[in-house]
């Protein structure tokens, strides 16, 4: 006959399980005795207080802790949580955004490498319409992208979210505002960066 499990004993002791819901108890004297002994032991343990120390002890303890803490360096908020960090992040984000905007506005016209290879034969492409086209250098050689990457490399995403520099859905909205060509270029850049 299988006896009650520790789990069942604890549930019975704590009253989360009624004895009537455990038919085994009525049939097994060993389990009844065990339950009864555990119950008495627990009751005894519950009734045992910690001796109250001298009233002077509490101030003594506080003084000891105070001394020990005084020898410690002051705890500080994590740097990304400090007020100065929020302001700094704001300025840094504004600078990054400004650089990105300038780089974007001054960028040369671009075409997809594959489009360039066909020599603008495809109808409707900028090359076909006679625009002067320039193939962008690889991502790793682009100074503006490198600058942005350097500035962003130290930013922890959770910290950036925490200080409110980005908002949920912000990336989706930004992508939605891109033109078709810009989306193609974004896709190329992401592929090149190994994100896609």
């Amino acid at each position: 006959m299988a006896h009650l499990s520790p789990d069942t004993f604890v549930d019975l002791l704590e009253g989360t399980l009624e004895e009537s819901a455990v038919p085994h108890l009525a049939q097994c004297e060993a389990c009844r005795d065990e339950l009864s002994g555990l119950r008495r032991t627990w009751q005894e343990a519950m009734n045992t207080d910690v001796p109250e120390p001298s009233p002077l002890f509490w101030d003594h303890l506080s003084a000891r802790v105070h001394e020990a803490v005084a020898a410690e360096p002051e705890p500080r908020r994590p740097w990304w949580n400090a007020a100065w960090a929020v302001r700094w992040f704001g300025l840094a984000a504004a600078a990054v955004a400004a650089i990105a905007l300038v780089a974007f506005l001054n960028r040369p016209a671009f075409v997809d490498q594959r489009t360039a290879q066909v020599g603008g034969e495809a109808q409707g492409t900028p090359a076909a319409s006679g625009q002067r086209l320039e193939v962008l250098p690889p991502l790793a050689e682009d100074e503006s992208v490198g600058l942005l990457a350097d500035l962003a490399s130290d930013l922890d995403w959770d910290a950036v979210v925490e200080v409110g520099l980005v908002r949920p859905g912000g990336a989706d909205r930004a992508v939605a505002e891109l033109s078709a060509d810009e989306r193609v270029e974004l896709q190329r850049l992401l592929t090149e960066a190994g994100v896609m």
């Binding site: 520790p6 789990d7 004993f9 604890v10 002791l13 002994g37 555990l38 008495r40 032991t41 627990w42 005894e44 343990a45």
Partner: peptide
């Protein structure tokens, strides 16, 4: 839960 059970069981034995 098992730790609570065995603690009580051992306590019962010790006492």
């Amino acid at each position: 839960k098992a730790n609570v059970f065995h603690a009580l069981q051992n306590l019962k034995k010790i006492l």
